[in-house]
Design a protein around this nucleic acid. Structure first.
Lengths: 195, 195, 195, 195
DNA sequence: AATGAATGAGTGTTCATTCAT
DNA sequence: TATGAATGAACACTCATTCAT
């Protein structure tokens, strides 16, 4: 959390710069100087906004998961059919890749370098999200919509792996592209590739 | 490539240690001392086997992709049906996760930190693999086995993302488990989750 | 060139320390720790002033040649007789040995360890100085003051070798001594040792 | 001194390689690997011939001064006139620059890096040589051949500086060139540049 | 007459961090 | 809201040296 008297807008700029650098070079490959350079300030100046490099990473990660669980819960509680819920979940999962791509990438790949409490806190959220997602599949099986022999845990992991890997190659240029990807991926998960 | 006169067995041990450390801590988060410690030698001793940390990474990555393209080509040229080819491809893709898990993880996550020529060389292999995989889907569509509206490029990426993410959570304990995952993932890709 | 915002006085202190250590131990025999110790700071602190050991060497060398060419040109353009010009040149050559003895020694003996551009830049200056000096002899020959059979190139090299070697044994204690040496050397070059 | 059972010829080859490398890169800038590479052997193999890098330097330096004092004494005791003695001394001083150029260069520039006893031993020789040379001038003055006001110590140093600097630029290609230089330098020292 | 394999000490350099201003 | 100046710890890498073979 930023100091109370920091302008939120400037703070967000700092965060964005950090996210971009962390995403590009990895947490350990990035130096605070890289971040400062991107902002046009001297490296020591960063410490007005963050108490440590690790806390900057924590902040970026937090922004990267923000809202994920909530959006999934909303879908879960909706009146949609099981497959429509999956479709919606995929869309909600991918859409932030457009607006906060770097934060999400950092959350995915660099959160493991978080120290102590920050790591466990962020991981708890990740596990909660996974659990919530699995329930969507379990409900589909229970409702007879999905195959009875479906391994819901593996399916959840498959879905997550599939979706998260988009950050590796998505260029961030068009939101429409993201929605198209979401639909395609939903098609695959729901109905597979065969006729 | 290792120096000509080094015992291959010892060299492989060094490689394994490097792979394990890189996988665990990331390339930039890992120190050469970490690797040496794991081997029970002094850090300077590593430089008898590698000329730089970067070249060690290159070697690990090379081992991590080794054989992938070849196995895929073999499948592609076999007499199997399109869906059986996908199933076989997934199995061949995942099976090394058991034996050379760390090398594969390093290849996936750390190859981007390779410098210059090493990076491009390894990336070329990765792209070739992707292309070969896509042709499997394209052939399935052409043969009328897969949906006509299938976006083969996206499907390829989905498959890769799904499969590669296994390294994040697979604990390396049982090869049977890997085969089970492969089958489940093949079921999903081929037929989806619905009845 | 030092970073723009560094206090010139402090920077000169750093330079002097580097010059002294380089002169005493040679570039490769000197460690940055030696320099830092002399300044009473920690070794890492040097890198606030220099971006590399090599650039420190470059700076010291630059200071070691500074003004040499200019002073020689002034003499060359003066109204003095040829032998008086040589006498003046020797004096101007040796006098800095008193004030910036270490810089000159480093320029003489260590500039060959400079890398790339720094080396060629500094060498260019050295060659220009040599050329200018040779013209003094050539003019003396043309004017009929010096022997017609004088090999001006060799004579220039002889003069330089003679003068530069003073840095090897001059103890830096008295400026008067330097002027005495200059006069003696001028006597030798101009008239030799015989009656 | 080499081990008793080493072939003198091979030992000389090793010495030459060391001299060349030390001359080119300086003692501290040269690595034992550089020397081994030049010889086409592995670096550890050098230690069959030398017990340390320092002792290799000592051996090279010793070869670089070998005979100097003796030759000067011979000249001193000859029946030549004072100026002819100086001329002969310069010739004898420069001639080895052709045959053992690297050893001489190393003696001149790198002997200061010798440790302990080796250094003092070699320096003693150098001082002896200087003393012997000065006596040549003193004798010339005493005999009325040279100027009465000649500062013999400075003149000796001038002569040495002049002559030794030849190693900096002499390319080692023609022995005739060396003799020409010697004659020119003798002319300068003896009679100066004026008519 | 060397080499393979290693070590221990040191080297230049980077980096996160601090703090007075 | 930053910067100048510095530090301490770590880091990749080099190097002279050793010793069994």
């Amino acid at each position: 959390m930023p100091k109370i008297d920091i302008k939120p807008k400037r703070f967000a700029e700092i965060l964005d710069a950090a996210a971009e650098i962390f995403a590009e070079k990895g947490y350990h490959g990035a130096s605070t100087t890289d971040i400062a350079d991107k902002l046009g300030i001297k490296q020591a100046g960063l410490y007005y906004y963050f108490k440590s490099k690790d806390s900057a990473l924590a902040e970026v990660c937090r922004l990267g998961v923000q809202g994920y669980v909530e959006r999934l819960v909303t879908i879960s509680q909706s009146e949609l059919s099981a497959d429509q819920k999956i479709r919606a979940a995929i869309r909600e999962h991918l859409q932030p890749f457009h607006h906060i791509r770097n934060h999400v990438r950092v959350f995915q790949s660099e959160r493991r370098y978080l120290a102590g409490e920050n790591r466990s806190e962020v991981n708890k959220l990740a596990r909660k999200y996974e659990r919530e997602l699995r329930r969507l599949f379990e409900a589909g099986v229970a409702a007879g919509e999905f195959r009875q022999n479906l391994d819901c845990k593996l399916t959840t992991l498959a879905l997550l792996g599939m979706c998260n890997s988009v950050t590796i190659w998505y260029d961030g240029k068009s939101e429409k592209q993201i929605l198209k990807i979401a639909d395609n991926y939903a098609d695959i998960i729901i109905g597979g590739v065969v006729k």
